[in-house]
Amino acid sequence: MILQGYQVTLTPVGEDDLDLLRQWRNDPDIARQMLSQEPISEEQQQAWFKKISRDPAQQHFVIRFRDEPIGSANIKACGPGKTLKTATTIEPGLYIGDPRYRQNILAFAPTLVLNDYCFEQLGVQQLRAVVKATNTAALNYNQKLGYRTLNSGDLVEITLNFEDYQQHTRAMKALLSRSATRTNP
């Protein structure tokens, strides 16, 4: 399934994307914010790709902007035995690989697309994330989306319900939904 909105497109990860995704994932700036920072080998990635390709509990996407890949996003069902279609809680994840867009308002766009999909299409009750306490950028980012802190420690558990999400993102959605003048090549 391809997801679109707010100027970005999320396409399911394919074989052709793996080299770029591994390159991004192993970039120290990105790996630093991950719960596991071990570099990913080509073999590990192939095994991961086989697993996720047939796993109904998760879906991984490449984020494209102006027809170029700029990052990666994923959603995972929370709870034993749950799939994306049966879960009441979903954990979204995202990183922007292209350094031009890491410090950019555009970084909100793929999250808005994913969150809309989770709440409005999949019908989940809440989204959940676990963020390193040292990752203040991600914590601030998620706070802007309406997330509330559930547990704090070295890892911070945060959750988001639909009502809070709608309230916090109305203005941002309007801003990123204006017409765009640039024509993609």
Binding site: Q7, Q103, N104, I105, L106, L175, L176, S177, R178, S179, A180, T181, R182
Partner: peptide, 11 residues
């Protein structure tokens, strides 16, 4: 009146 491309590019 800025469009979305302007808003994104205005970094």
């Amino acid at each position: 009146m800025l469009d979305t491309d302007d808003i994104i590019d205005m970094s």
